[in-house]
Every structure is written in C-alpha cells, then in structure tokens.
Computed example of a mutant assay.
Amino acid sequence: MKVSIGSKTMALPTPAWLVGTYDAEGKPNLMTAAWGGICCSKPVCVTVSLQKPRHSYAAIMERKAYTINVASAKDVAKVDYCGIVSGKNADKFAACGFTAVASELVDAPYVAECPLVLECKVIRVEDLGMHTMFVGEVMDVKVDEAAMKDGKPDPLLIDPIVYAPEDRHYYGLGANLGLGFSIGKELK
C-alpha cells in the first residue's frame, strides 16, 4: 500500500551539479544545483533552475551561458560547500582547489577537475514561480580520458554525486543493473 505524502520535490535522484558562470566582474563562480536535467535530444539541451536572488542567476541572465560540471563522489564536500556559500562573498574555485578553465564555446568557465563537463548556451528562459528555468543547448561535452571505457563515458568511472531533496543527503551510484533497451526483451 502506498502512503500519500503530498506535493513535494521527490523526483529521485536529482543531480548534484556544479553550475559554472562568470559574474559581472568576470570572476569565475560555481553554484551547486539539484534542479536540472536533460530536456531535449535534438538539439541536445539540459535545464538548470535557479532562484532569482542567487548570484549565479544574474550571471546566467547577463552572459547567456553556463557549464554543468559533474564532480566525482570524492569531491562531495566541495560540491556541498558550493551550495552553502555565495559567490558574492567567496572565491569558490580557490576554496575548493578547483581550476577554472575558460570555455572556448560559451561565456562560462568549467572545472578542470570534474570528469564530465557540459558547455551550454542559453536558448530559453522560463520564469516558473520560485525558480527560473534556463534551457541550455549543449555545445560540447568534455570527458576525462580516465573516465572513458570503450570510447564512451563510464558512469562508474565518473562516479557522479546525486542528491535526495527530502532527506537532504548526497548519494553515489550503485551497481550496473543491465543494458537499456535490452534486458526488458525477456518479458516479450
């Protein structure tokens, strides 16, 4: 039997992404965001939703660009820090020991130490209420060679962090459960 718990942000899991931007002074900044995901295959697009008071909100509105940086589980404390501290008051790249790399494709920095990076150009902005959703066309995906297997990004080598909003905990990935569009064929 299921128990109703009401309307909540319970799509599990959510990402724990580091969103890279340049602020009004051109300083690289990071913000941890869990409200985001893939929204289109062609053109390839992802969304990230931020509240207007966030330092990164103004940066994205001004520059029309952001990066999505997928950190490994070993950097979970750094990811959490980037969600606690405002870029108005701190240099998050320096505090985390991260290296800011200027994207050649969009007006935003990315994190050299993150094994997976998406460089995004904003193509749509939707005010949804408490959050504004930024739809970013993915101009390029960069993957560390060490996180590749058979020429493709390997989720277990990337070791991404996921977030559960209701209990406010970070989690890692579990085991490989099987090949998509394949294991279900046994039910035919």
Rank of each mutant, 00 (worst) to 15 (best):
M1E: 14
V3R: 10
S7I: 03
K8E: 05
K8N: 05
T9D: 12
P13M: 09
P13D: 00
P13G: 04
A16Q: 00
A16I: 00
W17R: 04
L18Y: 00
Y22D: 15
D23Y: 07
D23A: 10
K27T: 15
M31D: 01
A34G: 02
A34P: 00
W35H: 11
W35N: 07
W35R: 06
G36S: 14
G37S: 03
I38L: 09
C39D: 10
C40F: 12
V46D: 05
T47Q: 08
S49R: 11
S49P: 13
K52F: 08
Y57E: 14
I60Q: 08
I60L: 10
E62S: 13
K64V: 13
K64L: 02
A65K: 04
A65L: 03
Y66A: 10
Y66H: 09
I68Y: 06
V70A: 01
S72W: 01
D75S: 05
V76P: 01
V76N: 01
V76G: 01
K78S: 03
Y81I: 14
V85R: 07
S86H: 05
G87C: 07
G87K: 02
K88F: 06
A90R: 02
A90N: 10
A90I: 10
F93G: 10
F93T: 11
A94I: 15
A94F: 14
A94H: 12
A95R: 10
F98M: 13
T99V: 12
T99L: 15
E104H: 08
L105M: 09
L105R: 13
P109Y: 15
P109H: 11
Y110S: 08
V111G: 08
V111D: 02
V111K: 02
L116W: 09
L118T: 02
C120E: 07
I123Q: 13
R124K: 15
V125K: 04
E126T: 08
L128V: 11
M133E: 04
V138P: 02
M139Q: 10
V141C: 07
V143D: 06
D144C: 13
D154T: 04
P155E: 12
P155V: 05
L156A: 06
L156M: 07
P160Y: 01
I161V: 03
Y163W: 00
Y163L: 00
A164Y: 00
E166S: 04
E166H: 05
D167F: 04
R168N: 15
H169K: 09
Y170C: 00
L173K: 02
G174F: 11
N176T: 08
L177C: 08
S182Q: 14
I183E: 07
I183L: 14
I183M: 11
G184E: 09
